[in-house]
Design a binder for these strands. Structure first.
Lengths: 132, 132
DNA sequence: GTTATCATAGATCTATAATATCTACGATCG
DNA sequence: CGATCGTAGATATTATAGATCTATGATAAC
């Protein structure tokens, strides 16, 4: 079990967009170059963030991506759910059999992690950012 | 990102071994049948639990698997680490770049989940077990 | 000692998801 | 109109999970 590289790209892109905090959209070429990944692939990931309404895109010349909401409101969990989906990490018997005690423990553990990810907002990292 | 089915099989097998709590080893055929999985596959998973010293195996007639340690000491995290490995769920820049603030947040979140899994011991589920 | 039973290790196969690229398309600005 | 830029879809490529089979070695019962 591992977080995908796509999640890594998404988090770093969001952190960058939060730190520039400009009205001007940033093109995917520039974003991709900073992370050493192909623009085609990154744009697929960013489209998920658009659909989750974390960022918005503008086409045409001087187009690109910019934040939609406020930095204070964007959590790690928002970004991760947008990329990875929000399904449970553990499924016992195919469906959600809530009677399974193992399922209950795993779900509670997962919620502990998600609580932490939900409480950490992007704005907290803006000034201290390295490795972006 | 999802927990593997192997983890599911391992957890259910461990819960069963904890609930029978007999000196007699249980064969992999019986364990596999209860979960609707092939004995060949399950034995591969159980071998990992043996190497992690959570259970012990005995060959030959009337052989099989039985608990090694005490139920009070076996945590969910022990089992999960035995099957999935104990590497971090998130890797930022290939190596463990501890300067990356994103990495730090993800690591802290993961630790919150692991803390919960470590504090939940098998014995707590033995009596209430359904879906085993 | 022989035989039946049972775990282990290794090779192998398939299925599925992650990773990545390319092309065609539609939208926008100058 | 024409250059720029995001979107969607098709497609290719790995990597990993999931699963099975065979050969081997260990053990107990006879």
């Amino acid at each position: 079990m591992k977080y995908s590289k796509a999640t890594n790209y998404a988090l770093h892109t969001m952190l960058y967009l939060c730190s520039v905090s400009s009205d001007k959209p940033v093109g995917v070429q520039q974003l991709a170059q900073k992370q050493g990944v192909s623009p085609s692939y990154l744009s697929k990931i960013l489209t998920k963030l658009v659909k989750a309404e974390l960022i918005e895109s503008s086409s045409g010349a001087n187009g690109g991506y910019r934040l939609k909401g406020r930095k204070e409101d964007i959590s790690f969990l928002d970004i991760i759910h947008a990329v990875e989906g929000s399904a449970s990490l553990f499924e016992c018997c195919g469906s959600e059999d809530s009677r399974c005690v193992i399922q209950q423990v795993m779900l509670a553990a997962e919620e502990a992690m998600e609580r932490h990810l939900e409480n950490t907002k992007m704005i907290e990292l803006v000034d201290t950012s390295s490795c972006d």
